[in-house]
Design a protein around this nucleic acid. Structure first.
Lengths: 215, 215
DNA sequence: GATCCGTCGGGAATATCTCCCTGTCACAAG
DNA sequence: CTTGTGACAGGGAGATATTCCCGACGGATC
């Protein structure tokens, strides 16, 4: 008989881990052999148990998910990590893959996808949630690099973007940058159009989600 | 033989719901009789199935968790709702209880707590996660309002605040909450005045700084 | 009953946004 | 040298949005 796929779960929410454990354990050839709730803990536990696959959330207390991935991979480049995150923004996907993850799925995917992803990662393949893979492909085709849409902004546009996102009024931005009110108003419209948002509040949200502001 | 406790799950992530379903179904006297992923859907489903307990996430697409709670309770004041949120900030707890929730636990609690909470809520009691209950008591004792200025907002104002901060336009907020455009516009002005900000982007910033949004 | 307060919106003046357009400058390709 | 191209800066006009002031209603509270 073939041996089971061993899996380690990393998520800071115990209830969530328990749910996944049940989901995965319902599959005969998968066995959850360890759980961690912090990045540091995960590194240690991986070194000790060497599971086939690590299923990891990105928003971890402490060093965070990305740093955890890098740390684990720096000690064992064959480590297979599947990111299982709440975020579906491409920038997260790109960063996770850059860090060394083998797969990425979101928590809004169907339960079967999780099981499938674990199996594929274990067999050495990579796995992206289909909808994300498609968007990633679209974006890669559309632009040169991992374009966060923010990268499509010119320098001046980005200046305006930052201040608006911070909560400056159009008039305040104009003063700050020594521009005419109309100029800033026009930039504002242009930026929203480029970013595909309707309000400045949504711009702020983009800024936070891309980690442009600390907190 | 005593009949089972019927439970309805409301969470926008299918995988997460699946996990909870397994967790709860593992307990003999609990039965999950329905699932919804949006607030509107939850209201309808509750009206149709009348489960003993609703287990609900707060961050739902559309009208959001708080408005959902209020809507359900406005049609059936005996509805028993257990909020199961990722947020542990007290402001969420207070808001949820004000809206009519009977209990509040976070996703970082132990799995047994979920089962216990459901049982307690079903029996008519209320239930707060111990750690939260303690912090709530501390704050209340502390006397000095740990007023984030956000606490000066009324329930309705907070609804509008949340959506505006999320990036909704005035018109979209009006639709979501079924209010007149003018009403929302007036609320918007009032809220900005109460919070001492000039733009909706600054509202968004406040929201992020108070940990109201996940990212 | 009188008085707040929260909720919901109308009206009118004002501010802002959007869309289209002009013009300059720098820089690169033909 | 000429011809793009694209960032940069703003004007004009009309559409939208915001502000401020107001009335109305239902609940509390005193």
């Amino acid at each position: 008989m073939k041996s089971k796929i061993t899996v380690m779960l990393v998520d800071d929410h115990a209830v969530v881990r328990a749910g996944y454990r049940l989901l995965l354990s319902g599959t005969p050839n998968i066995e959850v052999v360890g759980e961690a709730e912090r990045g540091e803990e995960a590194c240690q536990l991986y070194a000790d148990t060497r599971p086939d696959v690590i299923v990891m959330d990105l928003s971890l207390p402490g060093i965070g998910g990305l740093a955890s991935i890098r740390r684990i991979r720096s000690r064992d480049t064959s480590a297979r990590i599947l990111v299982f995150s709440i975020h579906d923004e491409l920038i997260y996907v790109v960063r996770a893959l850059e860090a060394g993850a083998r797969g990425y799925i979101t928590k809004s995917c169907a339960p079967e996808i999780l099981v499938e992803a674990v199996a594929r990662i274990a067999s050495g393949e990579s796995f992206l949630e289909p909808e994300i893979a498609q968007r990633l492909a679209m974006q890669t085709l559309g632009g040169a690099e991992a374009t966060t849409a923010l990268n499509t902004l010119s320098a001046r546009e980005f200046d305006v973007f930052l201040l608006l996102a911070k909560g400056y009024t159009t008039r305040e931005v104009a003063e700050e940058l020594r521009l005419g009110y109309k100029t800033v108003a026009n930039y504002s419209t242009l930026i929203k159009s480029k970013l595909g948002v309707n309000t400045t509040a949504e711009m702020a949200r983009l800024a936070y989600q891309n980690g442009i502001f600390k907190t």
